[in-house]
Design a protein around this nucleic acid. Structure first.
Lengths: 186, 186
DNA sequence: TTGAGTATACCTACCAGTAGGTAGATGTCA
DNA sequence: TGACATCTACCTACTGGTAGGTATACTCAA
């Protein structure tokens, strides 16, 4: 694995545990095994690193959504996979979605990073709305309302469930908070 | 107002905007108008400040729930007031609930602070469960399921809605994410 | 084929600024 | 007089970032 990727992996891991203000170049340096100054070669400033981090995360996320779409044509399967993805990202209560972790540190982020963050959220909403529209047609989700309202509600549920579970360091809290929604899936 | 309260107010404000790792004693000092060292007189360490902050926040919160209970006997009114409380706490997209903001910084918090945080969440769940039990009786909420499941889901919704709205700095995102739930209230 | 030039990826040593925290003097008021 | 609240002045450790240097490798014209 090349050094840049290694640094991104390490930074993503720690950022999702501690947030943007919760890690330093020194942390990354000691973990990756190079000197602090050398990180500046790959990412001139921490702001650059933040942008690279969000960009890569958004790409990976959108790939994952594409895989979900390929795996099943049924809306309920797709939504279950979506919720499952957030559950996996929680890493047993230790990590958050990168964009959730970065949302708190809004004031420390560059304009560019904030734009990426908003793009990430709106892409999620677009995919979810599309999927709830499908649910209205295929009937695989019980009791569906307006697709956009369902989409924004589900995004809030998974994000909130992750946060509550992170606060208590218990995956069970995520499961509890998503149970009611999952019970609506065929 | 006494200095200690003034410091707590200031710290709460900035902590809810930037998180625990996002503010320093120097920030508080310049805002309150005393020297950094003087803050240590009131709160010997930042960990002490964090605990005091959460304690006061939890007390205020539980008072607010008591007021809601006094104001109406109808479950749907109480739940609407609960959601409205989180909306107000959002301060137009600029702030989060203190406990949400602190959840991200879990790793920087003392054991005592973490315990307070968990107590806060479980108190919320207790109140919400009780209120959804009432809803099952008074029929003021449509289509209610298991009270505990409803409670954890609603907590996730308001927390998640706050976070998404904070990420975009738009209150509208909170409204959008809570709309579907609010439409179930009589 | 060789050597000059250049790019990569790192290093040591440093910078100014800030973090949380401490010691001890000073002012103020019951 | 003494408790309280604040101050000045300082500490060590760490922050993101920079300057300048080095070993290794690739490229390309003489």
């Amino acid at each position: 694995m090349d050094r840049k990727t290694e640094l991104l992996n390490c930074a993503e891991n720690v950022a999702r545990r501690r947030g943007y203000d919760g890690f330093s170049y020194a942390d990354l340096a000691s973990e990756v095994g190079i000197r602090k100054a050398s990180i500046h070669y790959h990412f001139p400033s921490k702001a650059d690193l933040a942008v690279a981090l969000i960009e890569r995360y958004a790409d990976t996320f959108s790939d994952a959504l594409a895989v979900i779409d390929e795996t099943s044509d049924i809306a309920s399967d797709r939504l279950a996979a979506y919720v499952q993805g957030y559950r996996r990202a929680l890493s047993g209560g230790a990590k958050l979605c990168l964009c959730v972790a970065f949302s708190i540190s809004r004031d420390s982020l560059s304009e560019e990073a904030l734009a990426e963050l908003e793009a990430f959220h709106s892409n999620s909403i677009i995919w979810l709305t599309k999927t709830f529209e499908l649910a209205n047609k295929d009937g695989s989700v019980t009791n569906t309302g307006d697709p956009l309202e369902e989409a924004t509600t589900l995004l809030a549920i998974v994000v909130g469930a992750q946060l509550v579970a992170r606060a208590a360091n218990k995956v069970g809290d995520f499961d509890q908070a998503t149970k009611l929604f999952l019970s609506r899936l065929a």
